[in-house]
Design a binder for these strands. Structure first.
Length: 475
RNA sequence: GCGCCCUUCGUCUAUCGGUUAGGACGACAGCCUUUCACGUUGUAAAGACGGGUUCGACUCCCGUAGGGCGCACCA
């Protein structure tokens, strides 16, 4: 057991066979928060021992996803594949110690074995053919695999920070292959060797690894190595309760970026999935790091709820300072339809206009996608295209309101929201009309829509000439 | 089939034997209001089921049901 004074070393170890999905992102977040909060380090290891399915593109996507989420790793990412020789060395060591043996069964035989067991409704396990058989019986020309000699009696205990004490009967764990016939190590061996060699003290990963942990525990024990502290985090399911896995259309974090979520919102949301700190719902990343403890992790799976994520995202959008939000927004634009075009039009004057409009805009946006569409009126060219509701508003009565307002606004000494509002209000009072009778036609003419930020703010942001021009266009 | 795990409002969760079972999202209603939002006030909404243990069970034990994960020369 590592002593409490040792700084923890955690690791995130994705396999580069796809994008960084949401479950992986949360696992990374937990590893990161735990390490950060306890003066430790988080390592990154790319589990690329499967040469067939691992790709550089996937590795790049995972690293980009982590970076976008703001989860940094302390040491350069390690490729598991690059440590193959070391893994094979440990396999030989196990062999020499009598803790492993050569198995000459062909893949076909193994498949047959599995199918037979399944047909007979028996547990699907390797039958141990070569466990005690003399290697002299080895068929000629067959390249053997190395299997781990798993204890057949007793039980393997996992003391887990989230799951508690989990006991697995050893009879249910068969002799797993640790070295393939081509000499490549398999996952369970590589993971143990790497975690040990890299000095990992705390393993935090999904519960889907629980049985692997039992097997890995046996390997640690066979090697006489200390078993790291274990924490198995429950899984994240889809909104319908069905599983949310790569195979079932789970989204990579870059999809969440494209949907207009802020990294801090996603972090906050993810942290509250399977982990809690009393009644705290909205908290900063600093607070998360300060509060995060393994004991706060629950045991049951949770469903992904977009409505709650949106709510959180809206909160973060509203509370992000305008200049930071603009930066976020501009970094987000390249990832969506029509975004690059909008981005190309954001020159310095437009940037200034956007910044000025942002306070009104961000109140009304739950995602950056919404922010983009709400900001569309700033980019619109005269004469504006009106949507149907705007057209309805600009009927004869509406046009009349604009005609009445135009000279009034044009005469306003200062083109500033408060004074423009006063002018329109005075006019409404004088004519005994409700303010809305003027505000809605103005909104339609200025934005081409029937909803927008406060219309006097819109006037101010658009400026005198553009505003008056848009009004004249619709009179 | 075998092993392991899970089960509190629709959802995320608090509770660590004694609470009117709390909060948040969502829903609904009211207020605010130039639209839409924001904000704000309020309402409805939960311990899967059945047995124990106990003075007392959401909390501990057993069983049932439902769900999840795992059982590859994938990771």
């Amino acid at each position: 057991m590592p002593s409490a004074i040792t700084a923890p070393v955690t690791r995130f170890a994705p396999s580069p066979t796809g994008y960084l999905h949401i479950g992986g992102a949360r696992t990374a977040l937990f590893n990161w928060a735990f390490a950060k909060g306890h003066g430790g380090t988080m390592l990154l290891r790319i589990e690329d021992t499967d040469r067939e399915r691992s790709t550089d593109a996937a590795t790049a996507a995972i690293l980009e996803g982590l970076t976008w989420l703001g989860l940094t790793w302390d040491v350069e990412a390690v490729s598991q594949h690059s440590r193959m020789a070391r893994h094979a060395e440990v396999a030989s060591e196990l062999l020499a110690k009598g803790q492993a043996y050569y198995c000459y069964c062909s893949p076909e035989e193994l498949t047959a074995m599995r199918e037979k067991a399944e047909a007979e409704k028996r547990p699907i396990r390797y039958d141990g053919t070569w466990r005690n058989r003399d290697p002299k019986d080895a068929p000629a020309g067959v390249k053997p695999v190395i299997r781990f000699k798993s204890p057949q009696e007793g039980e393997t205990v996992i003391n887990d920070h989230a799951q508690g004490r989990v006991v697995i009967p050893n009879k249910d764990l068969d002799d797993l292959i640790i070295l393939r016939s081509d000499g490549n190590p398999t996952y369970n061996l590589s993971v143990v060797v790497d975690d040990h060699d890299m000095g990992v003290t705390h393993i935090i990963r999904g519960v889907d690894h629980l049985t692997n942990t039992a097997r890995q525990t046996q390997i640690y024990q066979a090697m006489g190595w200390p078993v790291p502290e274990m924490t198995h985090v429950p899984l994240i399911h889809g909104p319908d309760g069905a599983k949310l896995s790569k195979r079932h259309g789970a989204l990579g974090v870059e999809a969440y970026r494209a949907m207009g979520y802020l990294p801090e919102a996603l972090r906050n949301y993810l942290a509250r999935l399977g982990w809690s700190h009393g009644d705290d719902e909205i908290f900063s990343t600093e607070e998360l790091v300060r509060w995060f403890e393994l004991d706060g992790i629950g045991k049951s799976a949770s469903r992904f709820d977009f409505a709650k994520l949106e709510n959180l995202n809206g909160h973060y959008i509203r509370h992000t300072p305008d200049t930071d939000l603009l930066k976020h927004f501009m970094e987000f634009l390249p990832y969506i339809d029509g975004g690059p075009e909008m981005l190309a039009r954001i020159d310095e004057p437009m940037k200034a206009m956007l910044t000025k409009a942002l306070p009104g805009l961000k109140e009304r946006a739950k995602t950056l996608v919404e922010l983009k569409s709400n900001a569309a009126y700033l980019f619109a060219q005269r004469p504006l295209k009106l949507d149907d509701r705007a057209k309805t508003i600009l009927n004869d009565e509406g046009k009349a309101a604009l005609k009445a307002l135009h000279p009034l606004l044009a005469a306003s000494p200062a083109w500033q929201a408060a004074s423009l509002e006063q002018a329109v209000k005075d006019h409404a009072d004088a004519t005994g009309t409700k303010l809305g009778k003027f505000a809605q036609p103005l909104r339609a003419a200025l934005t081409g829509t029937f909803t927008s930020p406060g219309i006097f703010d819109v006037l101010e942001v658009l400026g005198r000439d553009e505003s008056l021009g848009r009004i004249v266009d619709q009179m």
